[in-house]
Simulated scan of single mutants.
Amino acid sequence: MKGIVLFGHGSRDAAWRQPIEAVAARIAAQADAPAVRCAYLELCAPDFATATAELVELGVTELRVLPMFLGMGRHAREDLPALVHVLQERCPHLSIQVLPPVGEHPGALDLFAQLATL
């Protein structure tokens, strides 16, 4: 079974989560959608460990992690790999793929340029 974690920084402001949760809802609405969870580094729940534990409990064996960051900063470069390492040790059967930050995807870059010139 496949699963996706949308991983963001987190914020005390509950409205900050809405775009990430909207992406999760759009994934979940697709036919044959993988299980999807949002996870946050700090300041709000669920954290990475909780979200991934839920997915493993559902039977996920293949996990894709999408960092919801514009670029490869410290959180994507250091914090996320450390969390993934702990998860991999806890669940050695789990196949984990960490994708590049969403803001580095060529399609996202094209969209940002298009939005700026509307």
Rank of each mutant, 00 (worst) to 15 (best):
L55N: 12
E57C: 11
M72E: 15
L109V: 10
A15P: 07
G103T: 15
F48A: 05
C44F: 05
P92L: 01
P100G: 05
R37Y: 08
R12H: 13
I96M: 09
G3H: 11
H85T: 12
V36D: 15
K2G: 01
L94E: 04
E78Y: 04
L115K: 10
A82R: 05
V36P: 15
R64Q: 10
R64F: 05
I96Y: 08
V98D: 05
L41K: 02
V36Y: 15
G71M: 00
Y40K: 00
L6C: 06
L58A: 14
H93F: 02
I96C: 14
I27G: 07
G71W: 00
L115H: 11
Q18A: 12
L41W: 14
I4W: 06
V36F: 15
Q114F: 13
Q18K: 11
R26I: 03
S95N: 15
A108P: 00
A108C: 03
L6T: 08
G8R: 07
Q30G: 14
Q88H: 01
R26G: 09
A14R: 05
G107T: 12
A15T: 12
M1W: 05
P67R: 01
L94D: 03
E89S: 10
L83F: 08
L111W: 12
L63E: 00
G73W: 08
L58R: 12
D79I: 14
Q30A: 15
V36S: 15
V84K: 00
Q114A: 15
P46L: 14
P19S: 00
K2S: 07
A76M: 10
M68Q: 13
L6S: 08
L70R: 09
V102G: 08
T50C: 03
P19A: 00
E42C: 02
R77S: 11
V102R: 10
I27S: 06
E21I: 08
A31E: 08
A24H: 07
R64S: 11
C38E: 03
A113D: 07
P92F: 03
C38H: 02
L115A: 14
P34E: 13
C44K: 03
F69D: 04
H75G: 01
G8F: 09
L111V: 08
L70P: 09
M72Y: 14
E62T: 06
P34C: 12
H93E: 04
